[in-house]
Amino acid sequence: MTSVPVPASRADRFVRELAELKIPDPAAARSTLWLRLGGLLMTAGLVLSGLAFPLAHATDSSLAQGDALALGLGGIAATVVGGALFLRYSLTNFLRFWLARQSFELDRLGERFGDRAGAVQTVPPVSEGGSRNGAAPTPR
């Protein structure tokens, strides 16, 4: 018995061709590094700000309180920057997945409806007189 091969979808062919290339994605490691750095910076900033509060209240010296306040503001800044990095790279990973899914769904719809989904309606060109049907323009 001979089996008839089933034609692969575009998504299957794309995945197979990517696997055949065996090229690692250098941006994936960099994205993970920035994501982890953002999470670490956000956590370290929260801890630093939390430690600065008791330091500022533990002394009557205005110089020590000023140092603790500066440390606390630095922690808040690190938290904001870390949160922005974490949010940016988290959304990048999510939107990359979303885009791949949308592409796959569009491909699947194209296979389901055939050429009708990809058909483009053409509009007849406008003649010199300004009419689409080729008739002479009416005088004003």
Results as ranks from 00 to 15, higher is better:
Pro54Asp: 02
Leu46Pro: 00
Arg30Gly: 00
Ala44Trp: 02
Phe53Asp: 08
Ala27Asp: 10
Pro54His: 02
Ala29His: 04
Glu20His: 09
Asp60Met: 01
Ala27Glu: 11
Ser62Pro: 09
Ser61Phe: 01
Glu17Met: 08
Val15Leu: 14
Leu55Arg: 15
Leu40Gly: 08
Ala11Pro: 01
Gly38Asp: 03
Leu55Phe: 12
Ala8Leu: 14
Gly45Leu: 04
Leu55Glu: 14
Pro7Met: 01
Pro24Gly: 02
Gly66His: 09
Leu63Gly: 10
Phe14Ile: 06
Gly38His: 03
Leu33Thr: 14
Leu46Ser: 08
Leu51Pro: 01
Ala52Trp: 01
Leu40Gln: 11
Ser49Pro: 00
Ser9Leu: 01
Leu21Ile: 05
Ala44Thr: 10
Leu41Cys: 06
Ser31Pro: 00
Leu40Pro: 00
Leu41Lys: 06
Ala70Lys: 12
Ala52Lys: 01
Gln65Leu: 01
Gln65Arg: 15
Thr32Lys: 15
Ala44Pro: 03
Arg16Phe: 07
Ser31Cys: 07
Leu41Val: 05
Leu48Lys: 10
Leu69Thr: 12
Gly50Val: 07
Thr59Cys: 02
Asp25Pro: 01
Pro24Ala: 12
Leu46Ile: 13
Val15Ala: 15
Phe14Val: 09
Leu35Lys: 07
Gly50Lys: 04
Gln65His: 08
Pro54Asn: 00
Trp34Cys: 12
Ala28His: 08
Arg16Asp: 14
Ser61Leu: 02
Leu46Cys: 12
Gly39Arg: 11
Ala44Met: 07
Leu41Ser: 13
Ala28Tyr: 03
Asp67Val: 13
Asp12Phe: 05
Gly66Glu: 10
Glu20Asn: 07
Leu37Pro: 01
Arg16His: 08
Gln65Ser: 10
Gln65Asp: 02
Leu33Tyr: 15
Arg30Tyr: 03
Leu46Trp: 08
Ala52Pro: 02
Met42Phe: 09
Leu48Met: 15
Arg30His: 05
Pro7His: 03
Gly45Trp: 05
Asp25His: 06
Phe14Met: 11
Leu69Met: 13
Glu17Phe: 07
Pro54Cys: 02
Gly50Cys: 05
Ser61Met: 02
Met42Gly: 06
Ala27Trp: 05
His57Pro: 00
Leu18Met: 14
Gly50Ile: 03
Ala64Glu: 13
Asp12Gln: 15
Leu63Met: 13
Ala58Asp: 10
Ala58His: 05
Phe14Pro: 00
Arg10Thr: 11
Ala44Phe: 05
Lys22Ile: 02
Pro26Gly: 03
Ala58Arg: 04
Leu35Trp: 10
Leu18Ser: 05
Phe53His: 08
Ser62Arg: 14
Arg13Lys: 14
Thr43Phe: 08
Gln65Phe: 00
Val15Trp: 11
Val47His: 03
Leu48Ala: 09
Gln65Val: 00
Ser49Ala: 15
Ile23Met: 13
Ser31Asp: 09
Leu33Arg: 14
Leu40Thr: 15
Val15Phe: 07
Ala70Gln: 07
Ser49Trp: 13
Arg36Leu: 14
Gly66Val: 03
Arg36Gly: 06
Ala27Arg: 12
Arg16Asn: 06
Leu40Cys: 10
Ser62Leu: 15
Ser31Phe: 00
Lys22Gln: 15
Pro26Tyr: 03
